[in-house]
């Protein structure tokens, strides 16, 4: 288990993402408590931790959708809250909860997204068609997003996030509720994307998937980073799942109780 390498030595390349003492409170509850997140450029990074650990809140603050109470966040060395324009042009986001323009069709959603980003219409249309094809959405491109299934929504949202060819991609639970076929499509697209040197940061509950995909892991618990580094260092000799349970101090509920379960007598 490594102590987190938060400050790279001078001369090292600027990390894709770096936060300093990020804090967010909701009423009396501190959702994010002095988080120093680092993600090296070009990595496929996983942000893991139990529900309520502060993963979503942290991602929202890094992408400029939520104002932090304290601390700062940088993407590619640019401060998110000092120069939002430069950061917004460089990142793509798939937020939690699949919040999309429900009454547009998949194709219209991509066209709208590209055009408000200032990409010429013909170019948007070309990229949209390719993305729809790669995401296996061509047949449903003219259906309204409100009628899409969860997997389709994740795929169209990822297509929208990729449309402007961002340097870094932030995905909140991209694989939650997604069928295996769609998940495979998502993974293929993301692998191709990071292979070209771009960065992906995604939060997930599915440890096997993180273990399979990521080369960099940050573990959060109770609003803090409890471990972060290359996957091999964080998990040590155990599986990532075991490492996580140990890091967050999962309780053992024991064998007592539930004696009636399984006998099927009544």
């Amino acid at each position: 288990m490594s102590e987190f390498p938060s400050a790279p030595a001078p001369g090292e390349p600027v990390p894709a993402v770096r936060t300093h003492g990020l804090v967010k409170r909701f009423g009396a509850q501190t959702a994010v408590d002095r988080v120093d997140l680092v993600v090296p450029r070009g990595s496929f990074a996983g942000l893991v931790g139990p529900n309520g650990a502060g993963k979503t809140t942290t991602l929202s603050m890094i992408t400029g959708l939520l104002v932090p109470d304290a601390g700062s966040a940088q993407v590619a060395g640019i401060d998110v809250w000092r120069d939002p324009a430069a950061v917004k042009a460089r990142v793509g986001v798939l937020p939690e909860g699949l919040r999309l323009f429900e009454r547009l069709s998949g194709r219209e959603l991509l066209l709208y997204n590209g055009q408000i980003r200032g990409i010429p219409r013909e170019e948007v249309a070309r990229r949209a068609e390719e993305l729809l094809r790669v995401m296996d959405l061509a047949a449903s491109a003219d259906k309204l997003v409100v009628d899409y299934s969860t997997g389709m929504r994740k795929k169209i949202a990822l297509a929208a996030a990729l449309l402007h060819n961002p340097e870094a991609l932030f995905l909140d639970e991209p694989f939650e509720g997604v069928d295996p076929v769609s998940a495979n499509t998502l993974v293929e697209v993301l692998r191709r994307y990071t292979a070209s040197g771009s960065t992906v940061v995604f939060s997930s509950h599915v440890m096997d998937l993180v273990e399979r995909l990521c080369d960099w892991v940050s573990v959060m618990n109770h609003g803090r980073i409890v471990a972060q580094g290359p996957l091999a260092e964080v998990r040590g000799n155990s599986t990532l799942n075991e490492a996580l349970l140990q890091l967050v101090g999962a309780r053992d509920h024991g064998e007592e109780g539930l004696t009636w379960l399984g006998s099927s007598s009544a």
């Binding site: 992408t63 959708l65 324009a85 917004k88 986001v93 919040r99 999309l100 323009f101 408000i116």
Partner: peptide, 18 residues
């Protein structure tokens, strides 16, 4: 009316002009 989808615009708009 945009509701929760507004993030999509918020992620793009970089000034009062937008």
């Amino acid at each position: 009316i945009d509701g929760r989808a507004l993030w999509m615009n918020a992620l793009v708009y970089t000034g009062a002009r937008d």
